[in-house]
Design a protein around this nucleic acid. Structure first.
Length: 287
DNA sequence: CTGCACGCCTGCCCGC
DNA sequence: TGCGGGCAGGCGTGCA
């Protein structure tokens, strides 16, 4: 799914139509995604104003004026589609025209403005929950997360401490959301290529210099991806329907058999499977 | 504790 | 053309 840059791109796309706006009516079209929706979710959302739309790791967080926060996760295939009101608004009425929901449209937010935001998720690995804002930090999904990559807490010393003694491949360690939050398969592959570190290298064997390099390449690749509006793969689109274009900048992800992008490197990108996930890497640059 | 396979879902693409 | 298998951005659970 979307990883941190895609979720941040979605957040930025949604903020203008949701932040400070009232949800006139929420429609919940099935009982669950990955887990059951919270009790009476549609009623608890309908009429609420969204004071702030934030993000923690890959979670979107909508703080409501009622003291609750809506937690949303896009899973692998979740999308937030924005539709401005159609042309057939009934004069003097708050009803706006929108096309009928499509397959996999699971939750619909009709804003007071007439704009419709639709949560669409083919694979339904996404999730929503609604909790007291004051209890967010103790939520079972959020309490286990490590620092954000851009927070001061994600320092060289911190990562060194977390990797120390761990016999797991560095690829797996960086995918572990308890160590650093927000990375997924694409950006771990890309960050390790930029750092010149093999995904198979054991976490405990990274030198302090390599650890410092990888904390920096993680921030660099995420910054570049956010600036490009994220990546568009299969199911993912930006919130406003535009295509992010960072996938054109992938150095290794999905490039098995293609030439390494390091100037002068003649090697071809290889794919190996680690813990059931594809790892793309250059056998020379990441030796 | 640690590492990893599995399951949850649907759709697409490839080879036969 | 159809069919089966593999693959896909995540992540909690349960097992060894």
């Amino acid at each position: 799914m979307p990883e941190l840059p895609e979720v941040e791109t979605v957040r930025r796309g949604l903020a203008p139509v949701m932040e400070g706006q009232v949800i006139a009516r929420a429609e919940v079209r099935r009982a669950d995604l990955r887990w059951p929706f919270p009790e009476r979710m549609a009623e608890r959302l309908s009429g609420a104003r969204i004071d702030r739309l934030g993000r923690r790791s890959k979670y979107l967080l909508a703080d409501l004026d009622r003291g609750e926060t809506l937690i949303m996760h896009l899973g692998m295939s979740g999308r937030m589609l924005i539709a401005k009101p159609g042309g057939t608004t009934i004069p003097g009425s708050f009803h706006h025209h929108h096309p009928a929901p499509e397959k996999h449209d699971h939750v619909i937010f009709d804003m007071d403005s007439g704009t419709r935001v639709t949560f669409n998720d083919v694979r339904r690995f996404g999730a929503m929950d609604l909790v007291a804002t004051g209890a967010l930090d103790t939520h079972r999904l959020l309490s286990v997360l490590g620092p954000e990559p851009f927070d001061n807490g994600f320092s060289d010393a911190y990562l060194a401490e977390k990797l120390k003694g761990r016999a797991t491949p560095v690829k797996s360690a960086l995918l572990d959301q308890r160590i650093v939050a927000g990375l997924g398969n694409i950006y771990v592959c890309e960050a390790l290529w930029r750092a010149g570190i093999s995904p198979m290298r054991l976490a405990r064997d990274l030198t302090p210099r390599q650890i410092a390099t990888v904390t920096q390449t993680i921030r660099d690749v995420l910054t570049d991806a956010i600036a490009a509006g994220g990546s568009s793969l299969r199911d993912y689109r930006q919130a406003d329907g535009e295509l992010g274009y960072f996938q054109h900048s992938f150095a290794v992800y999905g490039r098995e058999g293609e030439p390494c992008r390091t100037p002068g490197c003649a090697a071809r990108i290889e794919r190996v499977v680690q813990a059931g996930r594809s790892s793309f890497h250059c056998p020379v640059c990441q030796g």
